[in-house]
């Protein structure tokens, strides 16, 4: 007797959005951190000297290294927590894009000089 071909009754379930949300939010946080650190290094002599990781490049080396580390650490933590979950992606997108936009604005020297 021939067995009928198996037909999927439900379409394949989509991957949960948590992993994507973790990448998006952490990038927003990393970008914002970069802008905040660059302002802090510009305004404070102590921060400036603390972030001078590589003399020839100056404080830019520390600003970018710390921001990238913050981004990666945040990403790893969020990925661990959200990987198999479906999260409120609308709110996370809004937060990430706001952080990214603010970060972009704060790197513009006339705006950064307000602080």
């Amino acid at each position: 007797m021939n067995t009928p071909p198996r037909v999927a009754l439900h379409p394949r379930t989509a991957l949960p959005n948590g992993s994507g949300a973790a990448a998006i939010l952490s990038a927003g946080i990393g970008a914002f951190a970069l802008a905040v650190l660059s302002i802090a290094a510009d305004k404070s002599a102590l921060v400036k000297s603390s972030l001078n990781f590589y003399g020839p490049t100056g404080p830019l080396s520390g600003v970018t290294t710390v921001a990238i580390l913050l981004w990666i650490v945040t990403w790893v933590i969020l990925e661990g927590r959200w990987r198999s979950r479906t999260v409120a992606i609308g709110r996370i997108n809004a937060a990430a894009l706001a952080l990214l936009g603010l970060g972009l604005l704060l790197t513009f020297p006339p705006l950064a000089d307000i602080f």
Partner: peptide
Amino acid sequence: HVAWFAPISITTVAFVFIRYGRDLRNH
């Protein structure tokens, strides 16, 4: 400073694309 937004952003784009592949059409 602004230059660093390029690799951070495109790394995120690439990760999401590689992680989800064709499943991204559902998101």
